[in-house]
Amino acid sequence: MDRMDSLHNVEKWDPKTNRRLWSANHEEIIKGGTTDIYFVRTQEILNHMNYGDTEVTVEIFPSRPGIMAGTEEALGLMADAHNLEIWALPEGETFDKKEVIMRIKGPYQEIGIYETPLLGILASSAGWAEAARECREIVGEDKQLVCFGARHLHPAVAPVMERAALVGGFDGCSCILGAKLKDQKPMGTVPHAVFLIVGDTVRVAEAYHQAMPGEAPRIILVDTFKDEAEEALRVARSLDDDLAGVRLDTPSERGGVTPGLVREVRARLNQEGFDHVKILASGGMNPDKISRLIDEGVDAFGVGSYIARSKANDMTMDIKEVNGKPIAKRGRIPGIVNSEKLLKMK
Rank of each mutant, 00 (worst) to 15 (best):
V303F: 02
R20I: 12
A179P: 07
G70K: 08
V303C: 05
E11I: 04
F148V: 09
P191G: 14
D171R: 13
P186S: 06
P155E: 05
L75W: 04
R41H: 11
K325V: 10
E59Q: 02
K329A: 12
L293D: 06
R247C: 04
C147W: 00
G304V: 04
L118N: 07
S6D: 07
R151Q: 11
R309L: 14
A132D: 04
L122M: 11
E91R: 05
A165P: 15
N338G: 00
M212V: 13
G172M: 03
G260H: 10
L84W: 00
K180C: 03
D242Q: 10
S63H: 10
S310D: 00
I219Q: 04
L177G: 09
S63V: 14
A150I: 01
R203K: 08
L166N: 07
G256N: 01
G297M: 03
V262A: 13
I307S: 00
G92R: 04
P326K: 05
I307K: 01
Y38E: 15
V139F: 00
N286C: 03
E99N: 10
E28A: 12
D249S: 09
A232K: 07
I104A: 07
Q144C: 11
G127N: 10
G178A: 06
A267K: 07
R203F: 08
R136S: 03
F95P: 02
G335E: 00
A69F: 03
V167D: 14
N25P: 14
G273A: 12
I30K: 15
M317C: 08
V298K: 02
R163K: 12
V202D: 02
K12V: 15
S125T: 03
M4Q: 11
N18Q: 08
L233V: 07
M4V: 01
I333S: 10
Y51N: 11
D183A: 07
P191W: 13
G256P: 03
V322I: 06
R237I: 06
R330A: 12
L196T: 01
E340P: 00
D318Q: 10
A74L: 06
G52I: 12
M187A: 15
V10S: 03
R103D: 02
A150D: 02
R151G: 15
I319Y: 00
A179I: 02
D200E: 14
H152T: 09
R309Q: 13
E230R: 13
E230Y: 09
E72W: 10
G199K: 04
D5H: 15
I307P: 02
S63G: 13
L243R: 08
M49D: 05
Y114M: 13
T94A: 07
A205F: 02
F195H: 14
L269Q: 07
V146N: 03
I279C: 02
G304N: 10
G324F: 06
P186Y: 08
E162V: 14
H154C: 12
H154P: 14
R237S: 06
I67P: 03
A232T: 11
V265T: 14
R263A: 09
H276K: 02
V100N: 00
L181S: 13
N50G: 05
E215A: 08
I29S: 03
D227T: 05
F170N: 06
I333T: 11
V277G: 01
D96G: 11
A281G: 13
Q144K: 03
V194F: 05
A156E: 02
P15W: 00
K98P: 00
I197Y: 14
G324K: 13
